[in-house]
Design a protein around this nucleic acid. Structure first.
Lengths: 201, 201
DNA sequence: GCCTGTGAATTAGTTCACAGCA
DNA sequence: TGCTGTGAACTAATTCACAGGC
């Protein structure tokens, strides 16, 4: 909206864009403070500013990327979209000695994961993206726990637990597909989950 | 569990693995049928079979990938993890003429998106992964609506709406980072969201 | 005795509806 | 009059607690 030169918006308008109920929008925002003016609406630049503050993104957040040698890791390391929203991938890590010797072109130096604690401390990294294979995930998780990192965006298809120290968001892409598959299956199912053999022992 | 040779599991055990409450596990499963034996637990192979049936994954589901030229698209096109869970990327699409002329190595032929309706029909594709840039997302969405596709896993940083015809799961990676940033910010905030200037006009 | 399936109780989340301010 | 902020009403989700089968 700001890019479109709008200066004001109502909860109704936001609700439309977000596919939500206007009351929901108001309540959620009100939880953090009083950002609107009664009878008027929300001043867009101020609202944006407030949301940035709430999200802790007033200054650029340095992010580490572990598993930079894999294809997903490379894709995310080179993704331009993070910068626009105040994130910057400032350090790449991997375990594979081959990758460490010669980093894929376009990427800068890749460090061994063992150096994560030192480098994270130096660069103020509190957040990492994890794109390692399932087998490596728990080992890397251990190393992360020894570092200044307090948040993980995990793409490895294993459920890493959040603790008091570390928040984890697990993004299992296959599970997303499964979820969609379920919806497809439902709409094409008239009434039959027990249609074929289901004999007790 | 099946891979570990286990034959039985309890809701308690599953709950532990999934970080849920045992009652939750039982209720969720019971919603779809009676898969367990009282006093015993769930027979793992049968349970697995049932879940596969619920998810509509008894046979391999063919998936299309739109935006195969981009780095994320390539990464997902080559990702081995989908196959293990009964998905197969059977057709790649893009708009970029350069990509169409010479597909990145390792990938097979890439088709122009305009051919999606025809090819989707031929191959029975009902699901696509969308890894196009934000600008292209809505145009592509229009084309998808003309095809047999009924489910979209969208990585473009725009909120595509679900309809009665099409289910959309939007995966905005930057938003995931923002969410983590919020948690970091909370834990480092003693009591101050209105700490600096917030003057009314 | 152990563990599922499930109604009842509880807790959480959403929407309504209106007071209060521009 | 228009729109926010918010208690109250409502709806949904989770957890409890126990009947019933192994």
């Amino acid at each position: 909206l700001e890019k479109q030169g709008e200066m004001l918006c109502s909860s109704h308008q936001l609700a439309g864009l977000l596919h939500l109920n206007p009351a929901q929008v108001r309540k959620d925002l009100a939880y953090f403070g009083e950002f609107g003016k009664r009878g008027v609406g929300y001043a867009i630049p101020k609202l944006r500013e407030q949301i940035i503050k709430i999200l802790g993104l007033k200054q650029i957040r340095p992010v580490g990327l572990i598993g930079a040698g894999g294809r997903l890791g490379q894709a995310l390391a080179l993704y331009r979209g993070f910068e626009k929203r105040n994130f910057r991938v400032v350090a790449l890590f991997d375990k594979d000695p081959f990758i460490l010797r010669q980093s894929p072109m376009g990427l800068g130096k890749i460090h061994p994961v063992e150096e994560l604690p030192r480098i994270a401390k130096e660069l103020g990294i509190e957040m990492v993206i994890l794109t390692v294979p399932a087998e490596a995930a728990f080992d890397v998780y251990e190393i992360i726990q020894l570092s200044t990192v307090k948040a993980i965006l995990n793409f490895a298809p294993v459920q890493l637990p959040s603790t008091d120290e570390i928040v984890v968001h697990n993004v299992d892409l296959t599970m997303k597909l499964e979820s969609l598959s379920y919806y497809l299956n439902c709409s094409s199912l008239p009434e039959s989950l027990s249609e074929d053999d289901f004999s007790e022992d």
